[in-house]
């Protein structure tokens, strides 16, 4: 291919959670601009594998920007330079021949590195388990149209619910705060009438677990909003703050 890219990659290699990692240099040649970023890494990995070397471990699954598995920082930017895009949907036409790309894992104490670019994000699951749901026992639901929901609320809830739980917000935040993630879920659920019943308990419990997991504090820098591949707005963080204040002021047991 004539218009293939030649790139220098500096990739974080780390054997496991307890060992130290470091950046290692690699070169890839003749990368098609139509490749996705992960396909570029596939190319590198296949080359490594055929030489009997261990390929770079990275998480990926759907490769269409929705599962939230992929998680790498490219030149300091979670999911790479393109806004509103997961790294699996980032295409190599975004880069130029001769570029150097530094590829690192998410870095947060609450997301320990398991290997190379793979981090453990189960802290997010524990936050959801703490309250990120509406209790609706299977079988107990009334008719779907029993409760009208203003279109605007449904749309705002959907905006927030679009979160894919990838953790880019944490990776981007200078404080490794998970507020955007938590805010997205709290907003999604508290905007809907069904979610209001448990709203107070939900927000207090989720924030409590968020703190316990070791995420940092939000200082309103907005980096999360900029890097969120689903462009979730910090308006949701404001809503989370509001919900938390309401709940804290009214709670009888704190």
């Amino acid at each position: 291919m004539t218009n293939g890219l030649n790139l220098k990659l500096k990739i974080w290699r780390q054997k496991n959670q307890s060992s130290d990692g470091q950046l290692k240099d690699y070169h890839v040649k003749d990368i098609s601009p139509d490749m996705s970023f992960l396909e570029m890494l596939d190319t590198l990995n296949e080359e490594l594998e055929s030489n009997g070397e261990e390929p770079v471990a990275f998480e990926h699954d759907c490769r269409e920007g929705i599962c939230g598995s992929c998680s790498m920082v490219v030149n300091g930017k979670p999911h790479g330079p393109e806004r509103g895009t997961t790294v699996c949907q980032l295409h190599m036409r975004r880069f130029s021949d001769g570029d150097t790309l530094v590829i690192e894992p998410w870095r947060a104490k609450a997301f320990p590195i398991i290997k190379d670019l793979v981090v453990e994000r189960s802290a997010f699951d524990r936050i959801i388990a703490a309250g990120g749901f509406i209790t609706a026992r299977t079988g107990s639901a009334p008719d779907g149209n029993a409760v009208q929901i203003p279109k605007e609320h449904a749309e705002l809830a959907m905006d927030a619910a679009a979160c894919i739980g990838c953790g880019a917000c944490v990776a981007a935040c200078k404080n490794a705060s998970a507020m955007l993630f938590v805010a997205a879920k709290v907003s999604h659920l508290s905007l809907l009438p069904q979610g209001k019943v448990e709203a107070r308990k939900r927000v207090l419990d989720m924030v409590k677990v968020m703190d316990q997991e070791g995420f940092g504090n939000c200082t309103n820098t907005q980096a999360c909003e900029v890097e969120c591949p689903k462009e979730i707005k910090i308006e949701n963080i404001a809503r989370l703050n509001r919900e938390w204040i309401k709940a804290s002021a009214a709670a009888r047991d704190v």
């Binding site: 749901f133 509406i134 609706a136 299977t138 009334p142 779907g144 749309e155 999604h188 809907l192 069904q194």
Partner: peptide, 8 residues
Amino acid sequence: QCVSQGVP
């Protein structure tokens, strides 16, 4: 069921 769970 899904509406009750908050599926938007």
